[in-house]
Design a protein around this nucleic acid. Sequence first.
DNA 1: AAGAATGTTACATG
DNA 2: ACATGTAACATTCT
Length: 297
Amino acid sequence: MPELPEVETIVRDLRRARLADKTITGARVYWPKMVAPLTPRCFTRRLIGRRILRIQRRAKYIVIRLTGGETLLIHLRMTGQFTISADPETRARHEHILITLADGRTLRYRDTRKFGRWQLTNRPESLLGRLGPEPLAAAFKFRAFQEKMRLCRRQLKPLLLDQSILAGLGNIYVDEALWEARLHPRRQSHTLRAVETRRLFRAVRAVLRRGIRNRGTSLGDGRPNFSSLGTARGRNQRWLKVFQRTGRPCPRCGRAIVRLIVGQRSTHICPACQPAVVRIRTGGRKALRYKASARSR
DNA sequence: AAGAATGTTACATG
DNA sequence: ACATGTAACATTCT
């Protein structure tokens, strides 16, 4: 569910909920794996009595700074969600962690698939330091991006999903960025020409910014989809050009969107706008061909 | 009823 | 060393 824009939306809502300055008075963990390597008992003991200093986002992590030099790193993976209730209330279905605050409110973590992870640590850098740059930060420079693309020699899609290269993209926004940049997901990164790398660089930032502006993408029409703290859904789904739009017309050229598997992930492209083979005229009559690595399935 | 689902990682293979 | 592929994690929905 949550990629960079969704996590950013949640973090902003958590800030607005005025959690900062509140002291944690209780914590319950109902799925021990979620707080590993700590045990629920150890996790709880280290949390209680700490005060929340501030809430930030790094890549897809929610970063909660606490007193005593502790940091809570929360990764929602596929189905993690937060709500805040005024009272303790009985535990709802799929709620695995409940945090109570001194003001009586409870921060509730619900996660159907139980993939989410909470790490309480005094060395958050050991984890966060392994992540690539924030695509929306001023420090994210085209030159560095281009260099990485050149050195990596990987298919574009798995490369963009790799959090150590660029942090925050997931399946939705990668497909959208590649469509925007008119690049095939299996194209090898080192074959991109400067103009193409530039298009991709801009596309990545554009789709993420739009995602945030729209408060994230909520897929499907039912409940299991993304929503931030409340029940309000994101609005970005209206802006998706290819993701989960198999068979529908490409907004640019009208050709039907097709679905393929790349790097074991479901992938959506316009076969006309994102051709597997690109011919490029270089000066004279020599034509270079950049072929996306074949490989079906 | 098989297959897919917004993520990550350990391990295997080329 | 590096790129890529597979399975696993756990549950729900179509």
